[in-house]
């Protein structure tokens, strides 16, 4: 059944929500979501790359030969990732320092290559743009949510952007930060619990 552009966009927000429904691209999901700000920043960078690569791949899909398509995708994706990295260095340097090596690693994020291969290479430009944007925003929201939960439990605060942060301990002075949550194993546990909730709601 052919979908409309709106459906292609909204499927990324729930039905094919990357980390929770597809369980794809978990490396940055687990790695950078120590705070909500990091998660959102990573999500926005990935959205830019997804949107750009979907757009170009779809635009060039009749020119790119079948046999070298992966190589072409990688060139396109790697270019966008480098652009994001440079822009982030130029305009959001503190965030760039925090995300560090995870920015160049967007190149190997399987969501980006996956959308290029499975969707943009086979679909019209407008659909591919909607798909890239939808999946990207879904990814951003997922990372933001996971970051918020981990930061709230692990550090007692929620940082949305820069210095705008809310501290739980000022509301509940007896709250003890559960440091485990901001460490690597906490990421798995937290992701697992959120997956569980989302699966329960989704079915």
């Amino acid at each position: 059944m052919p979908k409309t552009i709106v459906q292609e966009f909204t499927k990324g927000l729930w039905e094919e929500l990357p980390p929770f429904r597809l369980v794809l691209g978990l490396c940055p999901v687990l790695g950078v979501t120590t705070t909500m700000e990091n998660g959102l920043g990573m999500g926005i960078a990935t959205t830019f790359v997804l949107f750009g690569s979907n757009l170009l791949v779809s635009l060039l899909r009749n020119i790119i030969p079948q046999k070298v398509r992966i190589a072409c995708f990688i060139i396109i994706i790697a270019s966008f990732v480098t652009i994001v990295e440079l822009l982030m260095q130029a305009y959001a340097y503190p965030l760039y320092l925090k995300l560090g090596v995870f920015i160049p690693l967007i190149v190997v994020n399987c969501i980006v290559l996956g959308r290029a291969e499975a969707f943009a290479y086979k679909n019209k430009l407008s659909y591919s743009m909607a798909d890239g944007l939808g999946i990207g925003i879904g990814f951003t929201l997922s990372l933001g949510a996971l970051g918020a939960v981990r930061e709230l439990l692990g550090n007692g605060s929620v940082t949305i952007w820069g210095d705008t942060s809310y501290n739980l301990m000022s509301v509940f002075p007896s709250f003890q930060p559960f440091e485990f949550m901001v460490q690597a194993p906490g990421a798995f546990v937290c992701l697992g619990l959120m997956l569980c909730v989302i699966n329960a709601v989704g079915d």
Binding site: V68, C72, I75, I76, I83
Partner: peptide, 22 residues
């Protein structure tokens, strides 16, 4: 030939764009 041309052109354009952004 087409494969070589497409890859070369794509890589060159990408290189040019990145140099400009840089």
């Amino acid at each position: 030939v087409k494969m070589v041309v497409v890859l070369t052109v794509l890589a060159s354009v990408a290189g040019g764009v990145l140099a400009a952004v840089n």
